[in-house]
Simulated scan of single mutants.
Amino acid sequence: MHELGVVIEVVKTVEDFARENSLMRIDTLVLQIGELSSMIPRFIEECYPAAVDGTLLADTKLRIEVLPANGRCTACGKVFHPPTDGESCPACGDTRFELLGGREFMIKEVIAY
């Protein structure tokens, strides 16, 4: 499970941000994860308590927003959802498309109080 190592790095990044901005308490950390990302939201949630143990984020809540995957057909320009529509354009059937989103993994928000 590579998610633990990634979450530990996220925690370090947020701790650095908190120190640089004189934040004493963080209530919620919001992550955005694309549905085609190699990060699995359920595994992120499971390893989060271990990653924040003994850190500034020890008592924080984790909120995950899953971002949908979207592709754009390079033949006709139709935007579609590859995970449910398949890897061919539902409008013209062409299999060439560019992925517009769905592989993201980012810190969206640090909510402090």
Rank of each mutant, 00 (worst) to 15 (best):
A50C: 04
A50N: 03
L29Q: 04
D53E: 12
I107C: 11
D94Y: 08
C89M: 07
V30S: 09
D94K: 13
V52G: 01
G101E: 14
E9L: 13
C73D: 11
I111F: 06
I64T: 14
G54R: 02
V6E: 03
K61N: 14
L67A: 10
V11M: 05
C73R: 09
A69E: 03
A50M: 14
I40Y: 15
V7H: 01
V30Q: 05
L23A: 08
F43V: 11
M1S: 11
T55P: 01
P68R: 13
G86M: 08
E87N: 05
N70D: 03
L57Y: 02
P68I: 02
P83Q: 10
G34A: 10
C76M: 09
C76T: 08
E3L: 02
I26E: 04
L56S: 01
C92P: 01
M39Y: 15
K78G: 03
G102Y: 00
F17A: 14
C92A: 07
I8L: 10
S37F: 12
V30W: 06
F80C: 02
F105I: 05
I44T: 10
V6Q: 02
M106N: 07
M24I: 06
G54E: 03
E87R: 01
H81E: 00
C92Q: 02
D53L: 15
L56N: 01
